[in-house]
Computed example of a mutant assay.
Amino acid sequence: TPLMMACTRKNLEVIQTLLEHGANPLLRNKDGWNCFHIASREGHPEVLQYLLDVSPSCWDTESTTGRTPLHTAALSCFCLLSRCQYKPDSRDSCGVTPFMDALQNGHVGIARLLLDKHQACPTAVDALGAQALHRAAVTAQDGSIRFLVSELGVDVNGRATSLQLPALHYAAKEGHGHTIQTLLSLGADVQAKDGKGRSALHVASAGQRAEAARILLRAGLQDAPDATGMLAQQLARRPDVIQAFQGTQVST
């Protein structure tokens, strides 16, 4: 709608004009978003305040995937928490909470607000069993990881999903070398194995992540068979990954 378009452009004057001429702020698009949802994504506090003034219930909405405006909020987060009655740790269809969303996108300040003003749970899990820590490892948000482990005391070796994956495995799978180093500096167990006996080296090798494999090997992780007898180096296909294993020892 024209009102939604005005919200994407953060044009308060046009928004006011449209609403004064009868635009409906509760209409939703094909994804289930109304104008307040869109304004939350754009992060314009003045627009959000105005929408709440003219339509106090517009905050109470979910998209077709269960995402509330709080999930998509940026700098507007404080406005949403102070004036809207969102439940703590509201979840979308994937079980993701606003706290997880904030940290996987590197918004530590917003995560602090959600903790202080909204009683967010730092160890809540999504539909697959992953915490904010694991999701931050996937997106290489080292600042978020430090916040969770150093300030909140989240277990850096905590496991996720039925496969019992630590955050180190997630970082290795994505090839985030600096995140692997951050996790190790925070006490991640380089020898940790998942539910199938695979080390982070197996995951890095299977994903053809040469830098990740080299970092893990330099950190003292030796190649060893998983539960099926497979070595990490047997999963290497790319020349640079194969080369990373040259001259390394195998642990039995």
Rank of each mutant, 00 (worst) to 15 (best):
F99Q: 04
T139G: 01
C94F: 14
P98R: 07
V54F: 02
G95V: 01
R67F: 13
W59V: 06
V108H: 03
T97V: 12
F99R: 03
G143H: 09
H107P: 11
V108F: 13
G66K: 06
S57H: 11
A102D: 04
C121A: 14
Q131T: 12
G109N: 02
L48P: 01
D142L: 06
G66Y: 05
C121M: 08
A137E: 07
P69N: 00
R91E: 15
L80P: 12
L80C: 07
S82A: 15
H134P: 01
G129H: 04
T64W: 00
V149Q: 09
G129M: 12
H71V: 03
V149L: 06
L113R: 04
P88S: 11
T139P: 07
H107Y: 15
A130M: 12
S63K: 00
M100D: 12
H118M: 04
Y86K: 02
Q131L: 12
D60V: 08
A127C: 05
A124F: 14
L75Y: 14
V108E: 15
P98Q: 13
L51D: 00
Q119T: 00
M100T: 08
H107E: 15
A74L: 10
G129F: 11
H118A: 06
L113I: 01
V149F: 11
N105E: 09
V96K: 04
V138S: 05
V149N: 01
G106T: 01
D53F: 07
L81Q: 07
A124N: 05
L81H: 12
S63C: 03
V47T: 03
C84L: 05
Q104T: 15
T61A: 05
T97A: 07
V138M: 03
S55E: 14
L113N: 13
V125P: 09
D116R: 15
S144N: 01
F99M: 02
